[in-house]
Design a protein around this nucleic acid. Structure first.
Lengths: 187, 187
DNA sequence: CAACGATACGGAGGGTGTCTCCGTTTAGCA
DNA sequence: TGCTAAACGGAGACACCCTCCGTATCGTTG
């Protein structure tokens, strides 16, 4: 692992910054690699040296943001409200995370269970966070018996993807999340 | 509305048939318009005269299949089991429909609420079918108060999209559908 | 400081995809 | 049979992701 040249790290950072901005504004599909390169003031060759595929670039662009998700799970669980309220709080922040970048919800949820995906690391983070939530609630006996983290990731990820794609109001998202929460909690 | 020439209707039908086959086998993205044209033995110009975009072709290809969905809703409701069983039966056939063509679940669910989409007619069909199911169950007092058809379409469509994309077993789909059903039914 | 080798850069262009344009062919009718 | 409007076919415009390789730059060494 040799140290990178100074111009290389500069470019890498600038590209990731620009890409993050563009992806947030316009969504994955609406941003072309040429556009990223031009905006960052580099050639596409440079872009591809740093990020071998568009998905890898996307992965890097949303990196910093995804790292806070575990903290969000803890925050949601830390409250002392009813289990339903805490679960909903987690769901809502989860959806809020996933929809912060247009297109991210579907891409990440699609990658669940695919070890070869560029998003595999992010998926693990999400799975772990959900597992913690489940464990905490199960310890209180608040859940039905048969809930597992992957299932929950997929369900909530599906909701997030739909919300993101149709640009729904948070209220619409919350109504769907309430259904999922009620389906998961002991009645 | 003039009558079409004989060769035109022949070609239109052959193209739709071939496209249906290809889309079912390989999924939307993996089928190119050139491939459809070549398989159907026509030029791409002809293809585009009959179907102005790839999505329009897709819409036509899955047309016949989608028309049976209302019947499926009735069948599911006709049984005399518990509300939960009937609801699940509907969900399962709904997911089975949506996943019969690879990629259809996400495309149709994405189009919910978008009147300009080529799939708008299909979305209405789905919405109506779900509305009937809701009405029937609500009449028995089996539902929580605040369920609406669009919400349900999105929830179940989201599950279908995830199942389709990750090529999950029916068992995995059913587990998620059970969560949705439990969340929707009065407890 | 100068010269050199490794590293990084840029952008032309390859491959594939959707869709358009227009010269050619053909169906259907008088 | 001849005519016209309808339909056909495929070259190619344009956009996209990505590769390749000649050129420029960094940073180290004599």
């Amino acid at each position: 692992m040799k140290p990178l040249r100074a111009d290389a790290v500069r470019n890498r950072e600038r590209i990731a910054d620009i890409a993050r901005q563009l992806f947030r504004e316009k969504g994955y599909d609406a941003v072309s690699m040429d556009e990223v390169a031009k905006s960052a003031g580099v050639g596409v060759g440079t872009l591809y040296r740093h990020f071998p595929t568009k998905e890898a670039l996307y992965d890097a662009a949303i990196q910093a943001w995804v790292e806070t998700v575990t903290a969000a799970a803890d925050t949601a669980l830390a409250g002392d409200g009813a289990p339903r309220d805490r679960l909903l709080a987690w769901f809502e922040s989860y959806v809020e995370f996933l929809t912060r970048h247009k297109g991210a919800a579907w891409r990440i949820t699609s990658a669940l269970g695919d070890e070869g995906s560029p998003f595999a690391a992010k998926c693990r983070t999400y799975l772990n966070a959900n597992q913690r939530v489940i464990d905490a609630l199960a310890a209180e006996g608040a859940l039905r018996g048969d809930v597992d983290a992957m299932q929950l990731c997929r369900l909530v990820g599906g909701v997030a993807a739909v919300v993101d794609n149709s640009e729904l109001e948070p209220a619409a998202a919350n109504a769907m999340l309430a259904v999922v929460a009620d389906g998961v909690l002991a009645s």
